[in-house]
């Protein structure tokens, strides 16, 4: 029983990072219509940046915060390249994000080499009701939930956030109000970059990252995002948790190498199911 609870705790923690990546997919997709294939790259870069900052003597907390700020800027830069000129079709942008992901491999290998890296997260265990779990798990879940609530407030309550929501709701109407949909797309990419970076700095202490870890991270995040048809952040968030727990159970009781296979199977299953219900973007 306690083994089960430990798997559950681990699953919720990694699932929370999937949820963050998934939310990044959703934010970018809703505003721009682009599926950002470079979403996992933000997590990898976040992990590497935090690693370097920590090695340079920057304190925990600040290092991770700076890493997330830089991934937000990288997200903005990726957005500039991917969205290109106003009116670039989403499908063209999608291909560009794929190119950016591959290009990032070269950058990461040039700067950091091709070995996996990791660093200490919050150390120590926390006993909750007879289950001892890593403090890092608690940190991850708390950070993910706080981020999600902050985003909900941003999109639902602030004027800028509402304008972003307007772009995802009806682009034509948003443009008629004078909202610059292209710029809002850049903003969405920056938010996506920050979300990916945050997932990366939280995940790296649990699972070492290397230059191509983005594929696994993106597949899990995308599978979670598909739960919400790529447009509903709350469902995507829940999807991340479900996926994380399912994978932790399988890895715990069977084999850890099945993890990505599960994500892919879940993703395919959901896509087929949604396709059979006509149109994943329908409310």
């Amino acid at each position: 029983m306690s083994l089960f609870l430990q798997y559950l705790a681990a699953g919720i923690a990694t699932g929370s990072t999937f949820a963050l990546v998934a939310t990044g997919f959703v934010v970018i997709y809703r505003v721009t219509g682009v599926i950002n294939f470079a979403q996992g790259v933000f997590a990898v870069l976040g992990g590497f940046l935090a690693y370097s900052l920590l090695h340079a003597g920057v304190a925990h907390g600040l290092a991770e915060g700076l890493a997330v700020a830089v991934t937000a800027a990288i997200g903005l830069a990726f957005g500039l390249v991917a969205l290109g000129r106003r009116g670039t079709p989403p499908l063209a942008s999608l291909i560009v994000t794929l190119g950016l992901a591959i290009f990032s491999y070269a950058v990461v290998i040039t700067i950091w080499g091709d070995n996996p890296i990791s660093y200490e997260g919050l150390s120590g265990l926390l006993a909750v009701g007879g289950v001892s779990m890593q403090r890092q798990y608690v940190l991850i879940v708390a950070a993910a939930v706080a981020t999600f609530l902050a985003l909900a407030l941003f999109f639902g309550r602030t004027y800028l956030g509402m304008a972003l929501t307007a772009c995802s709701s009806d682009q034509r109407a948003a443009r008629l109000m004078g909202i610059d949909v292209w710029r809002m797309g850049l903003l969405a990419f920056a938010v996506g970059g920050a979300l990916g970076g945050l997932a990366g700095v939280l995940l790296t202490p649990l699972q070492p990252v290397e230059f191509d870890s983005d594929v696994g991270i993106a597949v899990n995040g995308f599978a979670a995002a598909i739960f919400g048809g790529l447009v509903r952040p709350a469902t995507a968030f829940a999807g991340g948790l479900v996926l994380g727990v399912a994978e932790a159970m399988v890895a715990g009781y069977f084999r850890s190498s099945y993890e990505t296979a599960i994500a892919l199977a879940v993703m395919l299953g959901l896509m087929l199911w949604q396709a059979s219900r006509r149109g994943p973007t329908e409310e």
Binding site: Y159, M162, A166, S169, A173, A174, M177, I179
Partner: peptide, 15 residues
């Protein structure tokens, strides 16, 4: 072409 999931007031304010 209103923003259907937003309130009437939020629609107006975006104008």
């Amino acid at each position: 072409r209103l923003f259907p999931e937003m309130t009437v007031e939020d629609n107006l304010r975006l104008g």
